[in-house]
Amino acid sequence: MKKIIRITTVPISLGGLLKGQLKFMSNYYKMIGISSKGEQIDGVYQLDRVANEEIIEVIPVEMTRKITPLQDLKSVYHLYKIFKKEKPAIVHSHTPKAGTVSMIAAKFAGVPNRLHTIAGLPLMEAVGAKRILLDAVEKITYACASMIYPNSEGLKSIILDNNYTSEKKLKVLARGSSNGIDTNHFDPTLYSSKDNNALREKLGITQDDMVFVFVGRLVKDKGINELINAFNIIEQEHQQVKMILVGSYERELDPVLPQTESEIDRNPNIIPVGWQTDVRPFLAISDVLTFPSYREGFPNVVMQAGAMGVYSIVTNINGCNEIVEENINGLIIPPKSDEALKDAILKTIKNRELIKQTSLVCRQMIVERYERNYVWQEILHEYEKLLKN
C-alpha cells in the first residue's frame, strides 16, 4: 500500500481542518499525520487525539506559527529524516509554516509528489520588510512543491497576480474547500425547539431578540474591531439584538484594539462564549452569521452556517464571495468598513421575516456544492491520477 504523509503546523488543523479525511483516505493508502504535539488535555497530547480519532499513525514534529528561523531549520531537518525513512509517494501539506518546511524537506528528500494546499494567505495583511520576507518564503514553498492547490478560485487569482508560481502548478479541486462539510452533522433538524430555547435562556436571549453570531478567532484580521463598532451603533437604535461571539483571543499574534475587548466585556448584549468544540448549538439559535474577515482561503464557518440554514453577511474576499450569492443566501460587503457592516446588519433586521424564509435555500446551496464526500472523492481522484502518472 502506497504511503501518503499529511502535514499541518498544529494538531488542531490536522484534526479539525481535515476532520474525517485522513480516516477516509486510509481505506486506500497508508496515511501518516505529522504536526506539533500540541497541548496536553487530560494527560493526552492533541496530536495523539488526532491519531485516535482518525485511526492513523502520527509523528510529532515541533513547528511554530511565527517567524523562527532556527526552529524552522530544525523542523526541516527532522522532516527530511522522516521522509528518507518513510519514503512516501506523496507529502501533502496544509497551513503556511508546515507548507514551507515540509516542501523544502520533501524536495531534498526526493519525494516525487510534493503537494501544498493554500487555505489563506496571512501575508496579504503584512507590509514593508515583513511582506518582502513573507513573499520570498511563499515563492520558495511553491518552487519546492510539485503542485499547489488553492482552495478557492479567488486565492488562485491572488497567487497568479503576485507571481508566486506558474498557472500550470495550480489547481482548484472540486468547487473549492479543503475538506468540504458534513451536512449530516451540520443539520438544523438535529436541534429541537426545546434545545434551542434552553440555550437561549441560558445566554439571556429572549424569543424577540434577533441573534447575530460570529464564529472564529477574536482577532483584528477577522474584522472584530469593525464588528463591535457596528454593533454598538445598531443597538442604540434597536434594543432587541444580541451578538454571540464563538471563539478565543490571540493576543500575541493578532490582538484586537483594547477598546474593542473592553466593549465585549462590558456590553450585556454581546455574549462571548469562548472557544467551542461544537459550534452547531450557537448557529441553531442564530438568525445571521456576521463574518467581516479581511482574508480567507475557503472559510469553513460560512459553509457551516449555510448548512445550518443561517443567512450570512461576509466580506468581498476570496472564498466568502464564492460561497455567498448576494441577496440569496447572504450579503457581501467591502472589508474593513464599519459603515458597510452596519448597513448590512440593519438590512437584515428590517427584513428579518424574509431572511427566515431563506433557511432552506441557504442549506440546499451548501449540500449541492460542498458536501464532504464529494470533496474527498475529488482529492482521492487527484491522488490516483498523480500516482498513476
Rank of each mutant, 00 (worst) to 15 (best):
Thr165Leu: 11
Val76Leu: 08
Ile332Val: 15
Ser93Pro: 02
Asp42Gln: 13
Gly110Lys: 09
Gln364Glu: 15
Arg369Tyr: 05
Arg363Trp: 03
Leu386Asp: 01
Ile181Arg: 05
Ile379Phe: 03
Ile285Leu: 14
Val324Ile: 15
Ile224Tyr: 03
Phe291His: 04
Tyr249His: 13
Glu201Thr: 15
Arg114His: 08
Lys3Ser: 10
Arg114Met: 07
Met103Arg: 15
Ser152Val: 11
Glu296His: 09
Ala98Ile: 10
Asn269Trp: 02
Val101Ile: 13
Met25Gln: 14
Asn316Cys: 04
Tyr311His: 04
Gly204Ser: 10
Ala109Asp: 10
Gln71Gly: 05
Ser13Arg: 04
Ser262Phe: 05
Ala126Phe: 14
Thr183Phe: 13
Asn318Tyr: 05
Val172Tyr: 09
Ile270Asn: 00
Ser192Trp: 01
Asn179His: 09
Arg114Tyr: 08
Lys169Gln: 13
Asn351Thr: 09
Arg49Val: 13
Leu360Val: 10
Thr348Cys: 14
His238Tyr: 15
Val301Leu: 02
Lys350Met: 10
Asn269Glu: 03
Asp254Cys: 12
Ser293Met: 06
Lys66Ile: 04
Lys3His: 05
Ser293Ile: 04
Leu331Gly: 00
Tyr77Trp: 13
Ala174Arg: 12
Cys144Phe: 11
Gln276Trp: 07
Lys168Gly: 04
Gln357Met: 11
Leu360Glu: 14
Ile355Thr: 06
Glu62Arg: 08
Leu170His: 09
Ile148Cys: 14
Gln357Pro: 01
Phe231Leu: 06
Ile379Cys: 00
Glu261Ser: 12
Val367Met: 11
Ile332Asp: 02
Gly309His: 06
Ser157Gln: 15
Asp287His: 15
Asp161Val: 01
Ile205Cys: 03
Pro292Cys: 07
Pro272Gln: 05
His238Lys: 11
Arg217Tyr: 04
Ser35Glu: 05
Val44Tyr: 06
Lys37Asp: 06
Glu326Thr: 08
Ile224Met: 08
Leu245Asp: 02
Lys169Leu: 07
Leu123Phe: 15
Met308Tyr: 06
Gly306Ile: 00
Asn232Met: 10
Leu289Ser: 01
Val172Asn: 11
Asp135Glu: 13
Tyr28Trp: 10
Val375Ala: 02
Phe214Trp: 06
